[in-house]
Design a binder for these strands. Structure first.
Length: 481
RNA sequence: GUCCCUAUCGUCUAGCCUGGCCCAGGACACCGCCCUUUCACGGCGGCGACGGGGGUUCAAAUCCCCCUGGGGACGCCA
């Protein structure tokens, strides 16, 4: 990067599933760097995986980042001079660049079938070799390629890694990193469906969008050399790279929904203030100094340096999060307090969504607060509730719950009828009696025997909270063997 | 398995670059005491870490090497 070039950073989430706390984490550092340098933050939606992209997910990314106050300057929803900002709309650009690489000999067409590749991988694993493409199609002649193309054999475009070299790059936090090219795979650049992979799209878009600093998570370190190779193949200058540590579960593994709530929706629903969330995230790997741990993004901007990020993978500890949140809650005045509850908790929309569930069930309004508490609470108290039906034991329950969590995670759309279908199908699959199956789920999800219809309730409670409660039961004392 | 990243209290971290001020500081959690009609808040105190081994040096948490631990990547996912 030349000194005269402006700081332009980007955050590039893929719209699959719930908005992730890791996205917020990486966005924070990008945001701070952009703001303190008077630069720009670009939000680019990386939706090149056709099978996984969801429109609702994209919307939620906007909402979550806005909620946290991490506003971007350019994006699909805001426009800008370097659009389009939705990667799927840039397909032709990526294709052009792929053609260019093909022409200059930096890439080649590969006709290997997924089956052959799977077998290859299996074999390499068995032999304890490095996993990677074996270069089968690397030296196909022009005629052979033309012939196969004419026959309509599906193909991908791969990067032709010069194996006899070493690729080096500087990470702004970690220093110089180098890797032998023999360790680099001939990465697929264009998939057989015609869409680019992350690697190609990312490099091309970052360059075209004039991104100066690529700040992303640690998991990308090992593919950075491939990206460097791409920049070189195009004859482009590389941006500054910086890889921030990965957020971790309690057991130090990469943070995952199986072990920890990762959805920003969950924390919002839990009643974490956005300022507290951002503050807490900043504490993951960075510190303000002077033993001060409560600070605003503005204060952070005064002192933040990429180089000061601590590289040990920080455990995302909800206990500490709650403490930080308490600090922020203590600063609220009575207006702030009541506004929060009215604007964020007892909102018009939420109360209206609850109405059909309570319409015929209440005699007086006074009954509402008590009977609907599980629509507002987080963890529930299961003391004294018959979580395990008489005909089942704790072990069977655990197995049932684990299976259910997986099924619910895979559900495409979190809607009552879809949930109902899923429950019915799953119950039939495991051959449990309806009574044994539905009541425990109701108890786990609502904490009470009497509640509005189950599927409708689950829809309102939300996927993340339902998962959390089921896991809570799993981790609690109730089902201990 | 191969490669890469990483390493201070249980957890988040300060200190490390520019060795001595560090028998390592703060915060969370936990324990005790105080305040208090309860609970919380707050105050005070306690518990608690430089992963191991070699060097370099008068002196190492800080510099170097090895080992070990932890993590990540190895997809026509991102």
């Amino acid at each position: 990067m030349s000194d005269t070039q402006k700081v332009r950073v980007r955050v590039a989430p893929s719209p699959t599933g719930d908005p992730h706390v890791g996205t917020a984490y990486v966005t924070l550092f990008n945001y701070i760097l952009a703001k303190q340098a008077g630069g720009e933050l670009v939000l680019r939606i990386e939706d090149t995986d056709q099978s996984r992209a969801r429109a609702s997910s994209e919307q939620q990314i906007y909402e979550s980042l806005s909620w946290l106050g991490l506003e971007w300057d350019e994006g699909p929803d805001k426009g800008g001079d370097y659009g389009p900002y939705r990667q799927s709309e840039r397909k032709s650009i990526h294709l052009e660049h792929s053609e260019q690489l093909l022409k200059t000999g930096h890439a080649y067409r590969c006709f290997c079938t997924p089956e052959r590749l799977a077998k290859l991988r299996e074999q390499q694993r068995a032999e304890g070799k490095m996993l990677g493409y074996d270069g089968h199609c690397r030296s196909l002649s022009v005629e052979e390629v033309e012939q196969k193309m004419k026959e309509g054999v599906p193909s991908v475009v791969r990067l032709k890694v010069p194996k006899d070299r070493v690729t080096q790059f500087d990470d702004a936090i970690r220093g110089s990193i180098e890797i032998k090219n023999t360790q680099l795979d001939d990465q697929v650049l264009i998939k057989s469906d015609g869409f680019p992979t992350y690697h190609l799209a990312n490099v091309v878009d970052d360059h075209l969008m004039k991104i100066s600093h690529v700040i992303r998570a640690e998991e990308w370190i090992s593919s950075t050399p491939k990206h460097v190779l791409l920049y070189k193949a195009f004859g482009w200058e590389t941006p500054v790279f910086a890889h921030v540590p990965l957020l971790r579960n309690l057991d130090k593994s990469k943070i995952s929904k199986r072990k920890n709530p990762v959805s920003l929706n969950y924390y919002k629903r839990k009643g974490i203030l956005p300022e507290a969330m951002v503050n807490f995230l900043a504490l993951m790997g960075w510190s303000y100094g002077d033993d001060q741990e409560v600070f605003s993004p503005e204060q952070m901007m005064e002192k933040f340096k990429l180089k000061d990020i601590h590289l040990g993978g920080p455990v995302f500890d909800v206990v500490k999060l709650k403490h930080i949140n308490q600090q922020y809650m203590q600063k609220l005045d009575s207006k702030g307090f009541s506004h929060y509850l009215r604007d964020k908790v007892f909102t018009q929309d939420y109360l209206e969504s609850l109405f059909p569930l309570f319409k015929d069930r209440l005699e007086c309004f006074e009954q509402f607060v008590d009977r609907s508490s599980f629509f507002f609470n987080g963890g529930l108290d299961y003391e004294g509730l018959p979580l395990i039906p008489k005909s089942k034991d704790a072990k069977e329950m655990r197995t049932m719950i684990k299976g259910l969590i997986e099924e619910l995670d895979d559900l495409y759309e979190w809607k009552a009828d879809a949930i109902q279908n899923l429950l019915n199908t799953y119950r039939e699959k495991i051959e449990w009696k309806p009574r044994d199956f539905f009541m425990p789920i109701r108890l786990m999800a609502t904490g009470r025997k009497d509640s509005p219809p189950l599927a409708e309730s689950l829809e309102v409670i939300g996927r993340e909270m339902v998962r959390f409660r089921l896991r809570d039961v799993l981790n609690g004392a109730h089902l201990k063997p």
